[in-house]
Design a protein around this nucleic acid. Structure first.
Lengths: 177, 177
DNA sequence: CCTATCATGTAATCCGTTACATGATTAT
DNA sequence: ATAATCATGTAACGGATTACATGATAGG
């Protein structure tokens, strides 16, 4: 019983969120993703309904369904689930992320870089502004915010700065030496 | 006939490579991906066999199969395929890529940032070195290298620099203000 | 010659996306 | 009340990964 399944990043996201927040419904998870994590790793809401089912079948979560009304499903992490999460967290990864940037892909195949810059720049600038605002508003309560999200936000900001710089240079003078 | 299909980035990669290289086999495509594109957008080799079939069924490629020996399949872009590629290239996208960085995801959920830095730094440094070498060796024949790949390489270098800096700072002094 | 590796391809699985659908809540 | 939006969930489809499998080529 509790067939073993392959755990994907999605699995660990669900485990991680449930571990941090305690018993939650898929919709709760969706909200949590929206406020932070979703900025650098988004998920379809359907996944947040299906993935807990998989994890439950594998014994990593337990499920409680409301008797009346909406009969919502509430999930919580089991000991086994907690162990799986811990192990995953304890293994540093050397894996590198690929850019997988659609704009860059188009440019690679011949799209006009300046036209692309015109579309990308505002988008990246907006995202950067959003992040910096987030950081501002988080500064007050910095002590209450765990290190992980704080570090991740910093990474997001630095990444966005790069892109703003990259596309700016393309727009301003074409490709520099 | 030639049912319309949904074109994914994978589709355009196949179209783009075939357009640039002329008639090719899936294995040729695999080689092309390996030397450049794969650095920022990798694909499974199985996709390079299946995707051309889809595209052929949709009329975007034509297929020629060897009569003798290995009976390899050779593909080339049709007029319809060329038109689809052109249109895609001519539409600048404002879409932003997500980081989807596994190391960052772990840190987000509580993994030790310094341990992660220890694993990530060498990997990013190696990648950066590889890119810069690539750029060096390409400098001589710069005029022959199309703008797209050159710009993409630059983006890759800048991105890697960021990550090296990011993880370095974490390793050196923990999280700075 | 034999065996490792490269080349080439197919099949099965499964995760993720898209689409569909309906139950609550809020606003007008 | 009624429309609109939010909340909640399931079903179907398809692309991507994984696994399997065999044909060529080169090295020992």
């Amino acid at each position: 019983m509790s067939n073993e399944i392959r755990l994907t990043p999605t699995s660990y996201i669900v485990l991680g969120l449930l571990e941090a927040a305690g018993e939650s419904t898929p919709y709760d998870l969706k909200q949590m993703v929206a406020i932070g994590l979703g900025n650098f790793w988004s998920l379809q809401h359907a996944q947040l309904y299906k993935e807990p089912e998989r994890l439950t079948a594998a014994g990593l979560l337990s499920e409680r369904r409301e008797e009346s009304g909406r009969r919502r499903k509430h999930y919580r992490v089991t000991g086994k689930g907690r162990a799986a999460l811990r192990e995953w967290l304890s293994e540093p990864t050397a894996e590198l992320t690929e850019l997988r940037d659609l704009a860059l892909l188009k440019v690679f195949f011949g799209a006009d870089p300046e036209a692309m810059a015109a579309a990308q720049l505002p988008a990246h600038e907006a995202k950067l502004a959003e992040y910096e605002e987030l950081r501002q508003s988080a500064a007050d309560v910095a002590d209450e915010i765990p290190e992980g999200p704080r570090v991740s936000l910093r990474a997001g900001i630095e990444a966005e700065r790069i892109w703003v710089g990259f596309w700016s240079r393309i727009r301003d003078r074409g490709e520099p030496a």
